[in-house]
């Protein structure tokens, strides 16, 4: 296990390193002068000179790359073009809102998906199973921003049950949860479908294995078999899926934050694109990629811990 963990973490670090390099290349590969692009149309000659100095654009490319990494290691993602505040501070100010949304979505969709999947696996090929399969597929197919728009229309504008705008008063927990309902519903819905399907498939596979047959032969209650014996193995794919889910949910969160005018990293990126505040755009994208790599790595590690067979795969 330590060897696997070391390899997996090393791979994650390498991926992050390469992603950062790719980002650097992307910015530099854009035709035209990177300073004007990064600073946008409002750049003054002084600002330009300062940025050339800071990014060492008058130095050779490898020096620039080195400075880029050095700043990153110090947690320095550059400065906001307008306010001159540190991009790191701005991004980490917005991040909690997005994480709160993602965790809320994962929580409810994992619980409901697990329940629906177990229900289908317990009664395979019945009418209930077939209905659940169609429902899950429809959930999977529904794009988050479409669900967001429809739920906004129905529950906020039409019925006026739930708030349409913002993340709620800071410190007022019931109010914040209240503001989380619709956005987390919107991004979680397709995950209910994914999780239900994967849970069903995985449990059906496990239920066909020998140790389950033995347990049945010993007269262990079906409920206990499902929730105890099969659960340990059957749950594994869900853990992998949750790691990947972070990326999907980060993407979906962008749309949902816009639709519900919620603060968060998606809102930050979009408003920065519209105001051509490129350092903030790049900083946010980098931070979200790092979150993604870290979450897939963690899910791989947890998986390897639970299932020793995986360790030999890397």
């Amino acid at each position: 296990m330590p060897a696997y963990a070391a390899k997996r973490i090393l791979l994650a670090l390498l991926t992050i390193f390469l992603a950062v390099t790719l980002m650097f290349i992307m910015i530099r590969a854009i035709p035209g002068d990177p300073v004007s692009i990064l600073l946008g149309p409002r750049a003054t000659p002084e600002l330009k000179a300062a940025l050339i100095e800071r990014l060492a654009l008058d130095k050779p490319l490898y020096t620039q790359l080195f400075i880029f990494y050095r700043d990153l290691l110090h947690g320095d993602l550059g400065l906001d073009v307008f306010s001159n505040r540190s991009v790191t501070a701005i991004v980490f100010e917005q991040l909690p809102f997005t994480l709160e949304l993602i965790f809320a979505a994962i929580l409810w969709s994992a619980l409901l998906g697990l329940a629906l999947g177990l229900l289908a696996a317990a009664r395979p090929n019945t009418r209930l199973d077939k209905a659940l399969a169609i429902l899950s597929t429809a959930f999977v197919a529904a794009p988050a921003f479409v669900v967001a728009l429809l739920s906004l229309l129905l529950f906020s504008v039409h019925l006026q049950w739930l708030p349409a705008i913002g993340a709620g008063e800071s410190g007022n927990i019931p109010d914040r949860l209240y503001h989380l309902v619709l956005p987390s519903f919107a991004i979680g819905l397709s995950w209910v479908g994914y999780i239900a399907r994967i849970v069903r498939a995985s449990f059906l596979e496990v239920l066909g294995e020998d140790h389950i047959r033995t347990a049945r032969a010993f007269g262990v209650a079906e409920r206990k078999i499902l929730l105890s014996y099969a659960f340990r193995v059957g749950i594994l794919p869900v853990i992998t899926l949750l790691g990947v889910g972070m990326a999907f949910l980060l993407s979906a969160a962008v749309f949902t934050e816009i639709v519900f005018a919620r603060p968060g990293i998606g809102q930050l990126v979009i408003s920065s694109i519209n105001s051509r505040n490129y350092p903030v755009v790049m900083g946010s994208v980098l931070v979200s990629s790092v979150i993604f790599v870290v979450s897939t790595t963690i899910s791989d590690l947890v998986n390897a811990m639970l299932d020793p067979r995986i360790r030999s795969a890397l």
């Binding site: 980060l250 993407s251 994208v285 979200s288 790599v293």
Partner: peptide, 10 residues
């Protein structure tokens, strides 16, 4: 390692 929409936005 880039979330799709984030990469698209960049």
């Amino acid at each position: 390692s880039f979330p799709t929409v984030m990469f698209a936005l960049a």
